[in-house]
């Protein structure tokens, strides 16, 4: 087995493949860039933000499309869907599969927010000049544009809340094995045994 940095070695259990970790960090950089370029000027830090913002938005769109295709056709999409066992575990304290209930709900919320942000953002692109088209403000009525802008604005502010929560959990010592796995890709067999139900997440089979 190869031993270069980030690869899974003997005695380690793979949780996230390199391609999935890359996607996560590309998305993280995109979201942080999008939030910085949209919210910093609003709170008083003025700079030329628009071009960085929409180009980053397009990068995020491509990344999310890649993730959707990969998750639906090359991974196990049901591992991220809330099921009855998750709800039973709430009371019994049973171990989760690859993702616990909180992670599934967080993923659902972030998916709704990001897809809403991308959808509204792509429509808003029609209102600015790009290398491919001149702007056309008459696509929708004033009030329809207002609804689209409002959706985009609420997504941006909601993402701030979500990122605060996400960073907090990533930094918690009891979640460190999950954070490490997003950097290095693996968890230890003990962590696997302590935190996960092998019947719901068969790591060996998935690897």
């Amino acid at each position: 087995m190869s031993s270069h940095a980030g690869s899974v070695q003997a005695g380690q259990i793979q949780r996230h493949k390199l391609v999935d970790r890359l996607y996560h960090w590309v998305m993280a950089v995109c979201i942080l860039t999008l939030l910085a370029t949209s919210l910093l000027p609003i709170i008083g830090w003025k700079f030329a933000w628009l071009a960085i913002h929409w180009v980053t938005g397009l990068v995020l769109t491509v990344a999310v499309l890649f993730h959707i295709v990969r998750a639906l056709f090359f991974q196990k999409p049901m591992s991220m869907v809330v099921d009855g066992q998750d709800l039973q575990n709430l009371g019994s304290g049973g171990r989760p599969g690859k993702y616990n209930l909180a992670q599934k709900l967080y993923h659902l919320a972030i998916a709704v927010l990001i897809l809403s942000g991308i959808a509204s953002g792509l429509v808003m692109l029609r209102k600015i000049d790009t290398p491919w088209w001149r702007r056309d403000p008459y696509w929708f009525s004033d009030s329809s544009w207002g609804v689209i802008y409002s959706a985009h604005d609420f997504v941006a502010m909601s993402l701030v809340t979500m990122i605060i929560i996400h960073v907090y959990f990533a930094l918690r010592p009891d979640e460190w094995h999950l954070t490490r796995s997003m950097f290095r890709g693996w968890i230890t067999p003990k962590e696997y045994k302590d935190h996960f139900d092998p019947k719901r997440w068969n790591a060996e089979e998935e690897a």
């Binding site: 209102k127 702007r135 403000p137 008459y138 004033d142 544009w145 207002g146 802008y149």
Partner: peptide, 15 residues
């Protein structure tokens, strides 16, 4: 009018 410079979402001059 509620143009970009007035805090709105559109430019009425560049149409």
């Amino acid at each position: 009018l509620p143009c970009y410079r007035a805090g709105g979402n559109t430019c009425f001059a560049d149409t």
